[in-house]
Design a protein around this nucleic acid. Sequence first.
DNA 1: GACGTTCTAGAATATTCGGCT
DNA 2: AAGCCGAATATTCTAGAACGT
Lengths: 348, 348, 348
Amino acid sequence: MKQNSNVPAFLSKLWTLVEDSDTNEFITWSQNGQSFLVLDEQRFAKEILPKYFKHNNMASFVRQLNMYGFRKVVHVDSGIVKQERDGPVEFQHPFFMQGQDELLENIKRKVSSVRPEEAKVRQEDISKILNNAAKVQAKQDTIDTRLFTLKRENEALWREVSDLRAKHSQQQQVIRKVPLRTEPLKRGEISDDIVIYDITDNIEDVGVKTHVSPENPDNTSAERLKCLFFSIVLQLETKGMESFRNVETFPESTEDSRKSDQQLVQYTTYPLMAFLDGDPGNLISETQTSKTNEADNLLESSLDSQPTQSKLVRLEPLTEAEANEATLFYLCELAPTPLDSDMPLLDN
Amino acid sequence: MKQNSNVPAFLSKLWTLVEDSDTNEFITWSQNGQSFLVLDEQRFAKEILPKYFKHNNMASFVRQLNMYGFRKVVHVDSGIVKQERDGPVEFQHPFFMQGQDELLENIKRKVSSVRPEEAKVRQEDISKILNNAAKVQAKQDTIDTRLFTLKRENEALWREVSDLRAKHSQQQQVIRKVPLRTEPLKRGEISDDIVIYDITDNIEDVGVKTHVSPENPDNTSAERLKCLFFSIVLQLETKGMESFRNVETFPESTEDSRKSDQQLVQYTTYPLMAFLDGDPGNLISETQTSKTNEADNLLESSLDSQPTQSKLVRLEPLTEAEANEATLFYLCELAPTPLDSDMPLLDN
Amino acid sequence: MKQNSNVPAFLSKLWTLVEDSDTNEFITWSQNGQSFLVLDEQRFAKEILPKYFKHNNMASFVRQLNMYGFRKVVHVDSGIVKQERDGPVEFQHPFFMQGQDELLENIKRKVSSVRPEEAKVRQEDISKILNNAAKVQAKQDTIDTRLFTLKRENEALWREVSDLRAKHSQQQQVIRKVPLRTEPLKRGEISDDIVIYDITDNIEDVGVKTHVSPENPDNTSAERLKCLFFSIVLQLETKGMESFRNVETFPESTEDSRKSDQQLVQYTTYPLMAFLDGDPGNLISETQTSKTNEADNLLESSLDSQPTQSKLVRLEPLTEAEANEATLFYLCELAPTPLDSDMPLLDN
DNA sequence: GACGTTCTAGAATATTCGGCT
DNA sequence: AAGCCGAATATTCTAGAACGT
């Protein structure tokens, strides 16, 4: 057989040993040539093995055989303990066959999978990993529980909301059957109606938000919004006048106050331009007078002192209607200003 | 030695074997009596072992020795491969000493207790761990999904609650206008008549929602505009409804007061729809009053004299009702104006 | 020395070899006893080594020495090439000293640290597993945070719901004090009422839904427009319905006042379909009055005479009610104006 | 079920070869 | 080129595992 093949020494030697007819007394092929027999184990070990290997132990020989995947062929009479001589020992390997030495290179020596130290380290790692996994799973259980709790809570919330909604509907049904209030608001009630301010603030809030929107380099949108704020303010003002209107219809008041109340001027002037320019505006308000020109003067002066564009409206002596009109007019003055611009409200 | 002791048969036989002077030729105590020697391994195996055990294999004998914790004593000359006869084989165990058979019961047979796992585990458990990790991650995904679902549910809940809150406010508005059974509203009860607040809030909600839409800044602006329009309409409506309400409750008033207060006008006219869309619908409202034609004339004239859109309307002198009407009309006028321009209202 | 110590055979044999005075000719301690010398390498290898080891190769002997950490002691004359016989070979190890065999057990055989294939692969597996575990845990933390957030949100929701519930109760208290309308609503009223609210709700819902539709921003805008229009119209309708309600309750008034107040008109005309379809539909409301046809005629004529969209309608002479009606109509007229601009509201 | 027998495998050391510096 | 080392195989001792008693 080839000596330069990559077949390990043991297999080469074994092959030679079994093939060699000189050693047929101790080791030889079996009948079918698919296994080999060790006929006299004792003498084979002590006389033959040392000629080929560095030992004379059958055990070492067998260990090598096992190392290369050979298996012992068990005989049916193996259990019988014979006094003199045991039966032959037989080993086989799928690639160890008489006359086919080229198969030897298919026989691979087994390698120990792990090194001792590393194995220990690995074992520690594995236990770490397992501990970790246990923790993770425990935590997942916890999370699971919490999720479930939340889910139930949400369901409860839905029930709550549904319940509230039902109650609301019930109330709504009742409310629809309620006659509305007949008498006008009392003055005191109205006086508390400071809705205007609050709404204006609200609007301003929106306006600010819009104004600072960064994506759109076109500030025009923001400006348009401001224009709309105008409108809103107008609306608010209108409402304010309504309130006043109620006051005016206050015939139930005492004569004295009534008379003097007739001249009540109501208006609400808003620092609209200031709002638009970002300048803190001049909020001019007037109260109830006895038709003196104080209010007018006040208005005028404040208007005059205003250096920029917004023309203000003169309000003097006004009837209720006039006051309303004036207020509107004032707003009208402000409103059209943007109209000269060339930016459509809805463009993109 | 005692036969009825709980010492395994192997140990008893071994002890007997070593003690027995008849077998000293093959197996005997060492010099110091702390180990024993097998002098002629081959003959010992074939001639002595079968007399005590069910085999004649040195390997089986050695296996048993190892099973009970015996260790082979290695000799310095062990490496020598002798042609004829090997040196004696020596084994020792701490509790196997000449003359001290009572120690034998301390010798315990090894049990392959729980070792099977650890060895195999290394190869197999890694895959177990990996499987486990996969499961854990799958579960995490599930949890993730559930979390997301819960999150969305919560958002929906928030919307629900917000909606309920809005509805509550609306109801509150209505309720505030309802006369209580026992006594008229006290001032405090209606002092915070925040009709506009609530509506404005609703609008704001819409507005905010629109505001945060991220895709198209331009559209966003446009939508904000729309939202504001919506606000305006709501304001107007609120006002208008209040007026109407007053009118409607009129029949319950006394005839006298009725007569004198007849001038109350209800209307609702809004230029908003013009703003919002393209196609006109015909919205016709009608009222029934016994008014003069002053307002009509005024309206007419202003309409006629209106060259384009931006013309302002002068309204005077108006009654309260007329003023209100005029206000609305004015607003109608104002609205379309910006549409023709293609420039921001307040450009910078 | 002890034979059963855990000192490897090689060290035992080496120690014996060096100590043995019989082999001093070939191997012996150096002068200071801290190293040993191999005097005649050739004869030592061929004659001495086989007596102790399973080979007669100096290289194998040296390999073992290196395996146990022995180092060759380099001589100053090593560079000189001697023709016949080399100088003695000297090896040393910190724990291999004359007379101190107890140190031998400190000498450790080197172990190959890693197995190239399998060990590395497994190590990689382990790091994979550990990385994986780290990711999983990180994700768990994330989930934890989200859970916590959700929990807090839920708590806030509960507070909201609780608050709403409280408010509801308060309202309920108020409502209980309200006298309910005595007679049941007429069918039309109820249905109308329901319509109002329901539609409003629907619209709001639709608006929201539309709002979140992400695919087509333009469509979204358009739909929002429609929604807003719809809302507006609904608001108007609401108002109009209230009028209806008043009318319906009219029968309870005295005949006289009834007669005189007959002129109350209720209407509800809404260009809803037109808006929604983008097609102008003319929805004309009917009224129930003993009115003249003036208004109707006017309306009709204006509708007929409407060439395109932007034409204004002349309304005169109008009663107060007619004026209001005109205003509304006017608004309808106003709507198309934006269409003339170069930015259609609904374009894609 | 603990013990015994057999076959095989694990584990540590031993031997050899080749390569690297 | 001497010295050291990695790696594969070899040898030895011990242990695992299957199966039987």
